[in-house]
Amino acid sequence: MDRTSPSPQPPASSGSTDLLRASRPAMGSYFEMRLGAQTPGGIELAERALNIIDALESQLTVYRDDSEVSRLNANAHLGPIEVEAGLFRLLERAVAIGTATGGAYDITAGALSEAWGFFRGPKRVPDAETLADARARTGQHHLRLDPEHRTVEFDLPGVVINLGSIGKGYAIDRASQLVTQHWWPTSALIHGGRSSLYALGSPPGVFGGRWGVVVRNPFAPESPLGTLRLRNRGMGTSGASFQNFAHDGRVYGHILDPRTGEPALGPASVTVLAPSAAEADALSTAFYLLGTEATAAFVSDHPEIGAIFIEEGPSDRSPRVVTFGVADDEFSYDA
Results as ranks from 00 to 15, higher is better:
residue 113 S to Q: 15
residue 153 E to T: 06
residue 188 A to S: 01
residue 74 A to C: 05
residue 2 D to P: 07
residue 278 A to V: 06
residue 35 L to M: 15
residue 287 F to G: 02
residue 52 I to Q: 04
residue 256 L to H: 06
residue 48 R to I: 05
residue 95 V to N: 09
residue 125 V to A: 02
residue 107 I to D: 02
residue 250 R to C: 09
residue 293 E to I: 09
residue 180 T to G: 07
residue 323 T to C: 14
residue 40 P to C: 11
residue 165 S to M: 08
residue 299 V to K: 01
residue 22 A to G: 00
residue 126 P to N: 07
residue 201 G to I: 00
residue 119 F to A: 11
residue 108 T to G: 02
residue 108 T to I: 08
residue 63 Y to A: 12
residue 217 N to Q: 07
residue 308 I to T: 02
residue 66 D to S: 07
residue 244 N to K: 12
residue 66 D to N: 09
residue 165 S to P: 02
residue 222 E to F: 13
residue 114 E to C: 04
residue 181 Q to A: 08
residue 156 L to E: 00
residue 199 A to I: 04
residue 88 F to S: 10
residue 296 A to C: 09
residue 88 F to K: 11
residue 321 V to L: 15
residue 58 S to F: 10
residue 1 M to D: 09
residue 295 T to G: 10
residue 245 F to G: 00
residue 100 A to V: 11
residue 36 G to N: 01
residue 93 R to I: 01
residue 276 S to Y: 01
residue 332 S to N: 06
residue 187 S to D: 15
residue 16 S to D: 08
residue 98 G to W: 00
residue 101 T to G: 15
residue 182 H to G: 03
residue 285 T to I: 03
residue 154 F to Q: 03
residue 154 F to G: 08
residue 170 Y to E: 10
residue 114 E to R: 12
residue 224 P to Q: 07
residue 253 G to M: 14
residue 281 D to E: 08
residue 271 T to L: 13
residue 198 Y to H: 14
residue 325 G to Y: 06
residue 24 R to D: 00
residue 218 P to L: 11
residue 138 T to L: 00
residue 319 P to Q: 01
residue 307 A to D: 08
residue 51 N to G: 10
residue 138 T to C: 11
residue 238 S to T: 11
residue 133 D to H: 04
residue 230 L to W: 02
residue 89 R to F: 05
residue 86 G to E: 12
residue 208 G to K: 12
